[in-house]
Write a protein that binds this DNA or RNA. Structure first.
Lengths: 178, 178, 178, 178
DNA sequence: TATGAATGAGTGTTCATTCAT
DNA sequence: AATGAATGAACACTCATTCAT
């Protein structure tokens, strides 16, 4: 059921009616409402699915680096987030840009920003980077939004993700004062 | 007519029907269709209005600085863009986040990024900043999206715009290698 | 418009959908909502129409009798109410027995009962009848509901209204102690 | 099963879905259809239940009076019917005022009216009352509907049933010419 | 130029009923 | 006997758009 819907949504159905969704899933409309209380309920489930998968990819990549390799861990974070966003952008759009979305909060990024901020703070504590006055959260937010926007650009322009992650990492490290 | 509509939209009517819009403007529904071919046509007009106003504010602020004060011109760009986005966000959302928007292109930012890139390139040519390998356009895109995202954050959190512009400028100058 | 709907409802459409109603009226569904805000709104309009017509018939019949002919006025009230209810029962049912009707208040009879009670009180004051302890309103309510129920019986049994009114009047006068 | 459903309906569920009913009864939806062929079938069962209980209360009260105490038996009938209707009105409404009810026959009163008519006829034969030309059935119908309506009034107005039965009995005896 | 009555396809949601297990 | 997943027709209501006046 989840699989069918994920597939369906990945094909990009931002404005699909429940009729369309049920038809794509190969079930009757009533069946849809057997599993989801409302259209908003489906959106919530999908949003959760997206966030979990996104976060899991990043955590896995960062933890694959030695715990004292701060630059490596940071680059892993940036490159993986870029790739993950690139891969999952179709679902992202459906789930975070639908109408009735408080669009300003596109992608419940507070968790992600906090996660990145924690990495920044830890590295800073170890002397890996040199932030001047600003807080790790501010730095993380700045970098995260730049990443988000540049990936959007590449997607729009039809460019590949190949060098994108490392280029973003390079800019970002400059913000860290590394 | 334009004035009435701008007001109306600034009050934040993302889901207004043509009925609502016409009522707010104090005209009949038929009259609306004398001036706009469709709802999408209204959106286009509004989008143009927004972009023109936004760009005009930035140009005015930058040109108020001496033409050889590169850091001053850059900071004017960043601070003004932040403030303008802060002020005009209601219209921005209506116009760039509506359904049937290819959301990845939120805010037709190519013009703005190009404008910022030109400033970066000029300052770089004069030796004001030290970009290593990346192009001015890449740097401008990175900065612009970070600005966009951080302003969204402040808006969401209900924070004021007061120190925001200068903080973003401070981060950005580090990206420029200045 | 009103005419079309009244006809349509008189044909007995207790469970008609808006689709059916609009089709019967020969207009599109949207047109229906141009004139009525909701299905409940139509019901209200119909209810008002019914009540006005009902009351008007009774008032006309009573006022046709000399103002000091208390028994004549009373009989006119009863006979006319019986006939009117008999004639308009189809609309009555649609309007007062629909689902989502607080059925206990079938037919907004308070106005009618009050009207009858006023007649009873006036006649009593002139010495036409001899109520013992009970109030005119109680007497009127008792009579009115009996009238209502007996007419329902005749309708259900398929009997005509011919002698019904006078028979009910005869019972009722006994309640008045006349 | 019956018990659970009766409780459930007495709580007033005019618009309960089968889902709700089954949930309240603590069984699965499929189980409901083991015991009732359809929703209408449940209504029939409930209607029967209501009528049986109603009639039983009246019979018990009337038979508690001496068989030659005609006025006592009559008053017992009226007072008990009033109280019973007052007590059981929630079930009454569900069962007799649902949509798809030929509402004119609300409360299958023919049995009750016949029962009252038999009492009237017997008392009349013994010389307890003095009907002129009308039949016992007509008198019974008149009285029964008045009782029904006045109880509805009290219910609507939120009044208690205390004095209601005796007042109705008093009016009714006048109709009997007693 | 301005109106507003008319349209009708489309929406999310409900619910009595069926049936394989 | 008991379940509950599956169904799909039906519903009230919306709204961008047209067009005769």
């Amino acid at each position: 059921m989840q699989a069918a819907i994920t597939l369906l949504v990945d094909r990009g159905l931002p404005d699909s009616s429940i009729d369309d969704i049920a038809a794509q899933a190969g079930v009757a409309k009533g069946t849809f409402y057997h599993y989801f209380a409302s259209k908003a309920d489906l959106m919530d489930a999908l949003r959760q699915h997206f966030s979990d998968a996104f976060q899991a990819r990043i955590v896995a990549a960062v933890d694959a680096r030695p715990s004292d390799d701060w630059n490596g861990r940071f680059e892993a974070w940036i490159v993986t987030a870029t790739e993950a966003y690139f891969d999952m952008h179709a679902l992202h759009d459906v789930v975070f840009h639908g109408p009735s979305m408080p669009h300003r909060q596109a992608m419940d990024d507070t968790d992600l920003v906090r996660h990145l901020a924690a990495l920044v703070a830890a590295g800073q504590a170890e002397g890996a980077w040199h932030l001047s006055g600003e807080t790790p959260v501010q730095v993380a937010a700045f970098i995260f939004h730049a990443l988000h926007g540049m990936t959007d650009d590449a997607l729009t322009a039809g460019r590949s993700a190949d060098a994108l992650g490392t280029r973003i990492a390079q800019f970002s490290r400059r913000v860290l004062g590394g």
